[in-house]
């Protein structure tokens, strides 16, 4: 099973690069924060913590992974292998989502969230969206500085509205804005059918875009220097 193997090797690779260690440490830190805040703030704090780190870590880590791969010319190896871009993407997205989910389970439980399954579904969807954004940007650029520059607009259009939405400061029609739907779920709220539909449409578009970007990266041969 090629997809299964890609997924398992991604996990091994991420473990070797210390992703699991890093998230274990961060999760302990965040739990400490949750125990420090007053009881009434707990759920909202947990939602912000989950959304702004485990759920969105894919944006940065995907950038790091792809830049590292480019510097080692492994995209060339994939280009001449039977791997389909979609298999590569699904393996990356699901392996990073696994880390997001593990951290989110701990944080949501520590905060005593009621709808754990909705929180986790929201985390998984957010993680997929951010990882796909990470893939699309990382395939286009060739240095860490460029990558950081490009993530700024994504952060502004994603985190800003989502946090405002959590505190219900946004107008009603913005509840269909995809990241707001995600934030609603991460904070344990049941999303509307329309909201789910819009998020799914965004995911589909991001998957198709990232497939094209990955294919293009594989056949362009220039390596990058980190």
């Amino acid at each position: 099973m090629r997809l299964g193997s890609l997924f398992l090797w991604d996990i091994r690779f991420q473990a070797k690069h210390g992703f699991y260690f890093l998230y274990a440490v961060l999760t302990v830190l965040y739990v400490a924060v949750l125990f420090a805040v007053p009881e009434s703030w707990k759920e909202k704090t947990a939602a912000i913590l989950i959304f702004s780190d485990p759920a969105s870590m894919g944006l940065f880590f995907m950038g790091a992974i792809i830049l590292l791969e480019k510097s080692q010319h492994t995209p060339c190896a994939f280009a001449v292998s039977p791997v389909c871009p979609m298999e590569y993407i699904i393996a990356e997205v699901s392996s990073l989502s696994a880390i997001s989910l593990a951290a989110a389970v701990v944080l949501a439980s520590a905060a005593g969230a009621d709808n754990l399954h909705i929180v986790l579904l929201g985390t998984a969807i957010s993680s997929m969206i951010f990882t796909l954004f990470g893939i699309i940007i990382a395939t286009k650029i060739s240095s860490l500085n460029q990558f950081i520059l490009w993530t700024v607009p994504i952060e502004i259009v994603c985190f800003g509205p989502a946090i405002l939405h959590l505190f219900k400061i946004t107008p009603a029609w913005l509840r269909y804005y995809p990241v707001n739907v995600c934030m609603e779920m991460v904070s344990g709220g049941t999303p509307s059918a329309m909201g789910i539909l819009i998020v799914m449409a965004l995911l589909a578009i991001l998957f198709i875009l990232s497939k094209h970007c990955v294919l293009k990266m594989w056949s362009s041969t220039g390596g990058v220097k980190l």
Partner: peptide, 14 residues
């Protein structure tokens, strides 16, 4: 098809 590029295409950390 097997390809050997003029540069290394391996994961350095593995």
């Amino acid at each position: 098809i097997g390809v050997d590029f003029e540069f290394s295409t391996m994961y350095e950390k593995l």
